[in-house]
Amino acid sequence: MNTPPHRVLIIEDDRFLRRACEASLQKQGFAVTTAIDGEAGIEAVKRERPDLVLLDLLMPKVSGVEVLRAVKEDADTRAIPVVILSNSSRAEDRSEVMTLGAVSYLVKANLSLRELGAYLTGLLEKTT
């Protein structure tokens, strides 16, 4: 276990979800940082350059879609995979973010934290 843990940035405005997600992923061996809204999220991406971003969509001020666009427009951060974690299952939302370059679109309520951890591990091991 010499490899450094995968660094995941969670951008989520809901306090409880952020906390649960952070706790579980840490327990599952990820190095987790969090941002409480879109604005902070964009800054955190630029600052931290995480291995992966977990991004909520519906957030006040700066929405997840705008965060995604900012990440993908910046040449320095473009390569960072972004997984959308939303509770909306509207087809329009899904297709919009997939077009913008998100890796996948997951519905929070339909997912356990263990499943999420396993999915992210698989994803990161494939990309690295």
């Binding site: 809901d14 979800l17 579980s24 309520a109 356990s112």
Partner: peptide, 11 residues
């Protein structure tokens, strides 16, 4: 959203 919170907290 709150349901996911409950689900995850319980997990």
């Amino acid at each position: 959203t709150p349901l996911a919170g409950i689900k995850w907290m319980l997990e």
